[in-house]
């Protein structure tokens, strides 16, 4: 288990929308996918969702599985409406210029540390 803040810092990620207290949310599982149906059947709780999909549906899907936060990878910028949608849903949303593989490697190493 890791605090969300630690993971976000490791990705050099920028916040698009963050509700109060997001830093201290617990992450138990990292899940990375660009297929909504795979995200929907992901297992584990307190998921940090890593994806390069840019549609509204990513946020909806994150909500459906009760994800802790969403990080959009490979993105220096993201559409402003996504940030607004995330704010409305109260889900923390970030984006990082790092590609998906690099992001996963960094997070994987962190999750393995005690």
């Amino acid at each position: 288990m890791k605090k969300l803040l630690l993971l976000i810092e490791a990705l050099n990620a920028t916040a698009a929308s963050t509700p109060d207290g997001w830093e201290n949310r617990d992450v138990h599982t990292i899940f990375a996918s660009d297929l909504i149906s795979d995200i929907l059947v992901s297992e584990g709780d307190h998921i940090l969702l890593i994806t390069s999909l840019l549609s509204d549906q990513v946020l909806r899907t994150a909500d459906v599985i009760g994800a802790v936060a969403v990080v959009l990878v490979n993105r220096k910028k993201i559409p402003a409406m996504l940030g607004k949608a995330a704010a409305k849903q109260g889900i923390p949303l970030f984006h990082t210029p790092l590609p998906k593989f690099e992001s996963c490697v960094r997070l994987g190493r962190l999750m393995e540390t005690l």
Binding site: R60, D63, V64, G66
Partner: peptide, 28 residues
């Protein structure tokens, strides 16, 4: 509009204290 019903279903089930696992199955 996709996800409107499942978001409402999730809220309803959360308010009833249903277990998160079951809520997730129903919402998905």
């Amino acid at each position: 509009a996709g996800g409107k019903a499942s978001a409402e279903l999730r809220e309803q089930l959360q308010a009833r204290g249903i277990s998160p696992k079951i809520i997730r199955r129903a919402a998905v």
